[in-house]
Design a protein around this nucleic acid. Structure first.
Lengths: 124, 124
DNA sequence: CAGACCTTACCAAAGAATTGTCAAGGTTTA
DNA sequence: TAAACCTTGACAATTCTTTGGTAAGGTCTG
């Protein structure tokens, strides 16, 4: 039987079994199955799961967001429409006070979603 | 004073004033401001707001997801890491039962997140 | 100056995503 | 066969996002 069972995989990756199923369900990891339907985690899957943990923690986003990134790669139409929306007619806003981009100390949670946009735009 | 005020913009776009501020805060729309700090919505902004409504409804995703798409374009590092994760060593899973991809009638909410991956993969 | 706007900040209701847990039933292994 | 796994499905606690208010104070217009 090639690969670890879900419980073993959980131990070595730090995810709970519940989450491992969730991640699979979200389309973020493909698994092989044993004859009888058991999930089988190989070295590559384990590696990806560990990397995943790191990514989410380090870059500050969640599974649903990664799920959307996946949609963007799998659905060219979606990708196109989203790109189109972003690229539409920027029409220079005249009055963009640089203050607006430093005024980053505000509402408890609205700050969070906003913060994500600057997270990796260091002082530079 | 070039542009509609937030209340007027709300009326013609279908968003609430609260949401218009939220959208701006999320980095999804840049606005000019009047001398005294009032948000000014020009025709382009109004158009983008209407399009946005459509997009979200039609393609079935939310502001946070679009926010993440924005991060992906603005933060090349993030983009690179996410791409790298997706592209890592696919290691063919031997046993991918096509049933797994039709067994789409399940858990009340887990079905939803999963469904997003097939939404636009018609019968074809 | 009064009324009707606007601003930001905060609190909280409603919804959705995340995560645990348990039940009913099949598999593996000692 | 019994213990210790696995499967899927469901319910539910927790947490995060989305959305609406409301308060305190500034602006615009009559």
């Amino acid at each position: 039987m090639q690969g670890l069972t879900i419980q073993e995989a959980a131990q070595t990756t730090g995810w709970s079994p519940r989450m491992l199923r969730y991640i699979e369900r979200a389309g973020l990891l493909e698994l092989s199955r044993s004859e009888s339907g058991y999930r089988l985690y190989g070295p590559e899957q384990l590696q990806r799961l560990r990397t995943l943990r790191e990514l989410l923690a380090r870059l500050n986003f969640g599974l649903s967001e990664l799920g959307f990134a996946l949609r963007l790669r799998r659905e060219p139409l979606l990708r196109a429409e989203v790109d189109a929306w972003f690229d539409a007619e920027p029409e220079r806003p005249e009055h963009v006070d640089p203050d607006d981009w430093l005024r980053w100390e505000q509402d408890k949670h609205e700050a969070l979603i906003a913060a994500s946009h600057t997270t990796h735009m260091e002082i530079a």
